[in-house]
């Protein structure tokens, strides 16, 4: 098989120009209830004035779940232009309307599936609310954006069980119990776990490479900082079940013992 061979030799000789990595990035949904060019622009401007930190080419997903009006007649290009002029960068559309989707394709917007995100949010929402009513479960509405500039830490005192997902947007996540296998904890900042980490922990999910993860006992399924991750198999070899911190050093994830 000459073709395969040549491919093989080529790949070993030339260093890879790119690699694909998994990343998990929370996106803000811009849920549009009704649209009128002047009114929309005016409201967006006043919002931007309230929280200028947030409106700096922040990527948003356009959503029309609660839209009141005729979606077929919506001038998407105009709406996108207004967003861009006010520091929001629409990157995707979440709606099943074929007319809107066609417009979105012309504007180079990605099409997101409808519904799934909402269902997932519903499942995690109650757990989130019982523990820290002040924290935001997800960056779902533009009204919450003012909270972002505070960078609040989120403290959870109960164990994070298998199947639960806890996210601290814009700040640190502090868990004063264990994170079970099959559970997932995420933060834009650092993650502190005063118990065993048996599930998945993802710090710096918006790309903060200085974020760290601390835990009392490393038994994790996955540890990730700003998209650079190690799984169970790579972690088992050193400092397994020890108190450690994970940090990023030149794009590689380092596990070092605490103390």
């Amino acid at each position: 098989m000459p073709l395969l061979k040549s491919l093989d030799s080529k790949s070993s000789a030339v260093s890879a120009a790119f690699r694909l990595k998994g990343g998990l990035f929370p996106l803000t949904l811009l849920e549009i209830a009704h649209y009128n060019c002047a009114e929309f622009e005016q409201q967006l401007q006043s919002k931007a004035a309230e929280a200028p930190v947030f409106f700096q080419q922040t990527p948003v997903v356009l959503s029309f779940e609660e839209f009141n009006g005729d979606l077929n007649a919506l001038p998407l290009s105009e709406l996108v232009a207004i967003c861009k002029a006010n520091g929001l960068l629409p990157v995707a559309l979440r709606n099943s309307n074929p007319e809107l989707q066609a417009q979105a394709k012309l504007l180079d917007l990605a099409i997101m599936p409808v519904g799934r995100v909402k269902a997932a949010a519903e499942e995690q929402a109650p757990a989130v609310e019982t523990k820290a009513p002040a924290a935001e479960p997800s960056a779902a509405e533009t009204e919450q954006t003012t909270e972002f500039s505070h960078s609040p830490s989120r403290i959870v005192t109960t164990p994070i069980r298998s199947g639960q997902q806890v996210y601290a947007p814009g700040g640190d996540l502090i868990i004063m119990a264990s994170v079970s296998a099959g559970a997932e904890v995420l933060a834009d900042g650092n993650i502190h776990i005063y118990g065993a980490l048996r599930g998945r922990a993802l710090a710096g999910v918006r790309g903060d490479t200085s974020a760290r993860i601390f835990c009392q006992s490393l038994e994790a399924e996955l540890v990730s900082i700003a998209g650079n991750f190690k799984v169970d198999e790579d972690l088992r070899n050193n400092h397994w079940k020890a108190a450690v911190q994970a940090s990023l050093d030149e794009q590689s994830l380092c596990i070092t013992p605490l103390v």
Binding site: A127, T130, R161, G163, A181
Partner: peptide, 23 residues
């Protein structure tokens, strides 16, 4: 044990007590 862990999570997030903010 894994399944029990999952159930405990659901219990503390979806039951009526959880909805009222109790455990």
């Amino acid at each position: 044990v894994r399944d029990s862990d999952r159930i405990l999570g659901i219990l503390q997030s979806k039951s009526r007590r959880a909805e009222k903010g109790e455990r």
